[in-house]
Design a protein around this nucleic acid. Structure first.
Lengths: 346, 346
DNA sequence: ATGAAAGCGCTAACAT
DNA sequence: ATGTTAGCGCTTTCAT
């Protein structure tokens, strides 16, 4: 007897067509901005859309266009060992990537679907999900060089752009930073402010970026008269930065400069230096890497090698969209240049 | 003459059915685990699925089931003023929410679609997107009390669960923290370690949580003999924490304790205190809020009121899924209790 | 327990 | 420039 409050079915193209006195096809045309639409009829149709409160049904459209109109943002963790990956999404790095991706994609009306791929299972899961049309392509954040996901996606014929150059000669699009240059810049800056005993806290060696940053740093140090650079390897965490700094200090009491392969470790290094009564930057200069929030949060604020992560992420999205439009085009890549951001620590 | 390398169409139910010698309906049944399936036929079908490499088409399924099989994770920013919201996704808070949501949803095979809603436009955009079936419901992170999105989604009949209690008497599901208790706990701890001159750096008052944390803090302070608590209002940033601390120090040189409404501001406060030659915690004890990465990154590490964000986020997802299964059930809510995490700063 | 068949709402030929 | 129509791949009555 009463109106049922149950969610009434939302209007379809058919409803709009009827209201406007035209055919479904015409309505579809005005919605999809296709040529050959009489301005008058167009107005009528828009009016009808307004009145009926019509919204296109995404599934129906996807079914026929074979496009999801979505992209996946896949964060790939180290992998096999049952690490709970609580860290991945909390890393300020991910936040910056997400920011860059979202800001680029939003004006286009497409949102990223976030997927985590840490274990073998979840990797398969991700591939299967993409194959069923959850997204048209993947933005893959994968730094670990042993990661098989880039290859998996390639095999599954899924358009993919990777953040960080994949190892090996894979035909995959990617964006990356000139890490080698970044290391060089850090060393040159330290030398330029008069430092003579350079040391470094590297990132793990299974991350290509770590190796390159260190290589660039060493090369520049050598060129400026310091052939041997004491190094400790950390794990990109603040705590490992502390360990590295302690070890470095114990073995090289006279060091006057340290290059940390990321800001988190740089922050840890600063803490240890201060605990040991060293003034930063007077006694020991510290240069970080990334220009993440950790750099400004630290006291003294970290001088660091900036990685334009947001821009890189946006470019990654752009490359993927390009690839979706012209699948025949081969993979492409863009390398960004790091810049030095001077603050207080060096 | 040669095989075309173009992406061959992926197999459909029809293909599997033919390979198995059964009807589409049967295949559909085994895939969807529906009763009445002869074990023998079941085996044959699974075999066929394996052989053909079949993966269900998500759009086709959604079209008929009227379910997207996805949920939106909507991050709502302050709003009108053209703030570029670079901050939202970079906030460690968002990372923790995402972690909680993703970890809960992943075993269920559903991924969150991330949407940013900062301006009026983007809010409408979000509502429109959800209406077209991009997601079945929304997990909304909205702390700003003037945010209209909770209401917008409610009006659009979209199942929603909000992180942080929405203002007013809205019939919306939500998860939240007992912020008042959190403030109380902070004050009681400071009193228990012998502090007599409590001060506070509050969060902005248009965030309900800020008001409650402060109210709880004040109430407990009053009960322990300190009826008046000097307060400065920050903006939840490290920098604003520094300003707040400077002001507090200038006006109350003898203060021996400060409660910061989040860890970022607490970290800023610590920096300022040390610059002013105050030892933390000996001269001034500092208690933060959240238990975010800022708390452990700070030196001394921050004693803080922990908010179990990951658990809260998971619960948010659970509530949403419940609601999707039983739409007739009314809104529900869960309030979490804060706990004190003792570190070095107090 | 299985099959046949009717759509879900939309786009894209093709026809006019 | 607009209308007609044939599906896209799947679930789901309804028969059997």
């Amino acid at each position: 007897m009463s109106d049922r409050p149950s969610p009434r079915p939302s209007p379809t193209l058919e409803d709009v067509a009827r209201a406007a006195g035209v055919s479904r096809a015409t309505v579809s045309r005005v919605i999809n901005q296709i040529r050959n639409v009489d301005p008058l009829i167009q107005a009528v149709v828009r009016q009808a859309i307004e009145e009926t409160g019509y919204v296109p049904n995404r599934a129906a459209r996807s079914l026929v266009t074979r496009r999801a109109g979505a992209v996946a943002l896949v964060v790939s963790g180290a992998g096999e060992d049952g690490d709970s990956d609580e860290q991945l999404l909390t890393d300020p790095f991910f936040g910056r990537v997400a920011t860059g991706v979202v800001n680029f994609l939003r004006p286009l009306g497409i949102h990223p679907v976030v997927m985590l791929a840490d274990s073998t299972d979840s990797r398969d899961q991700v591939v299967a999900d993409l194959r069923r049309g959850t997204a048209d392509g993947a933005l893959l954040v994968s730094t670990h060089s042993a990661d098989t996901l880039p290859l998996d996606l390639l095999e599954a014929q899924l358009p993919t752009v990777v953040f960080a150059r994949p190892p090996g000669p894979q035909r995959v699009s990617f964006v990356d930073l000139a890490h080698y240059d970044g290391g060089r810049i850090a060393a040159e800056h330290l030398v330029s402010i008069g430092r003579r005993f350079l040391t470094a806290i590297s990132g793990p060696f299974d991350v290509m970026a770590s190796q390159e940053r260190l290589a660039g740093f060493r090369e520049a140090a050598a060129r400026h008269g310091q052939p041997y650079v004491p190094v400790h390897v950390g794990r990109f965490t603040q705590e490992s930065g502390e360990w590295g700094m302690k070890a470095l200090l114990a073995e090289n009491p006279k060091l006057d400069a340290v290059f940390a392969a990321n800001d988190l470790m740089g922050q840890g290094a600063v803490h240890v230096l201060r605990e040991h009564g060293k003034r930063v930057p007077e006694d020991v200069a510290v240069v970080g890497f990334d220009d993440s929030s950790a750099a400004t949060a630290s006291r003294p604020a970290l001088t660091t090698v900036r990685q334009p992560v947001e821009d890189m992420a946006a470019e990654m999205a752009r490359l993927l969209l390009d690839h979706l439009e012209r699948p025949e085009a081969g993979p492409s890549s863009v390398i960004f240049e790091p810049t030095l951001v001077r603050r207080q620590s060096a």
